[in-house]
């Protein structure tokens, strides 16, 4: 019997391609974002009207100094994508984490304590989710004013419900398990049971949601930049670049496509990272 258990305990799953690819992309992006002021070939704000709409370096008529071409004002697309990553990742990390903390805390309380706590939180979530999210965000930014902090506040205020709902359901399911009854038989207090028994079992769910939320935060930031409600209009953001690129899509596709690809890969990578981490580090084989 001991040998059988030995064998089961010895099972260690490999990190998997999913984790390597998503983690690799995000690590490279984080490095690029941190080092952007040093590795970007040009100032992202520097305009050169004589070098406008230059194609990427491998196409005819390109200037090799501008690897991914320039936009209609002659700004370097590569430098702007790199600097845009700073904004995108900052928003993803800060907004994602704050959303997770607030939403998961409310979800845990509602799911574990039930009763009037649950009624109050659940009805609030229902009402909250009836607001159209993008309009809600635009309204909030209109009230708070543009700026990075406003974007983060808008994401947290809108998206905490996503965590609250899912974590509430998970906390309810875990609360019905006998190990919770067992903690009570052992004389453990309610709050302590929530912190030491329920929370660790909800962490994988919260982790997966967190990485998804980071991807959503990147998209929301891009949407708000797209409608010019992010930080100042010149500042390099992926959404802002996509908005500008849209105007010249027939003359200069690269202004639109490169930030879009960066956005797409980043959102995809965040989602896959969550799944990959859960597969790799969850001690419970499912």
């Amino acid at each position: 019997m001991a040998d059988a258990a030995e064998g089961r305990g010895a099972v260690r799953r490999r990190a998997g391609l999913r984790l390597w690819l998503s983690g690799g992309w995000l690590a490279a992006l984080a490095a690029a974002a941190l080092l952007a002021p040093w590795i970007a070939p040009h100032d992202p704000l520097a305009q050169d009207l004589f070098a406008g709409r230059l194609p990427p370096a491998w196409q005819a008529g390109a200037d090799p100094a501008y690897l991914l071409g320039t936009d209609s004002l002659g700004r370097d697309v590569l430098s702007r994508v790199l600097h845009g990553a700073r904004v995108a990742l900052f928003v993803a990390l800060v907004a994602g984490t704050l959303t997770a903390l607030i939403g998961a805390a409310l979800g845990l309380l509602a799911g574990f304590y039930r009763g009037w706590v649950d009624v109050a939180i659940s009805r609030l979530v229902d009402i909250w989710m009836a607001f159209p999210p993008v309009l809600f965000a635009i309204l909030l930014i209109a009230v708070l004013g543009t700026g990075l902090a406003s974007i983060i506040v808008a994401i947290v205020v809108i998206d905490w419900t996503r965590f609250a709902r899912v974590v509430r359901a998970e906390a309810m399911a875990q609360g019905a398990m006998d190990y919770v009854a067992s903690a009570r038989v052992a004389g453990m207090g309610r709050l302590r049971t929530l912190a030491t028994e329920i929370l660790p079992n909800c962490l994988p769910t919260i982790g997966v949601l967190l990485t998804l939320e980071m991807g959503i935060a990147v998209i929301v930031e891009a949407i708000l930049s797209f409608v010019n409600l992010s930080i100042s209009t010149d500042a390099p953001t992926w959404g802002g670049m996509i908005a500008e690129g849209r105007l010249s899509i027939h003359q200069a596709w690269w202004v639109l496509v490169f930030p879009l690809v960066a956005l797409f890969l980043t959102v995809l990578a965040f989602g896959q990272l969550g799944e990959g981490l859960k597969d790799r580090f969850d001690p419970v084989l499912r």
Partner: peptide, 25 residues
């Protein structure tokens, strides 16, 4: 419950389904 807690050491329980009654994490 608070008054019960010190007494709880003295009456214990073994559960039907050990997979559910042992915290998997």
């Amino acid at each position: 419950e608070p008054a019960l807690r010190p007494l709880r050491r003295r009456f214990q329980m073994i559960f039907q389904d050990p997979l559910s009654s042992l915290n998997p994490r």
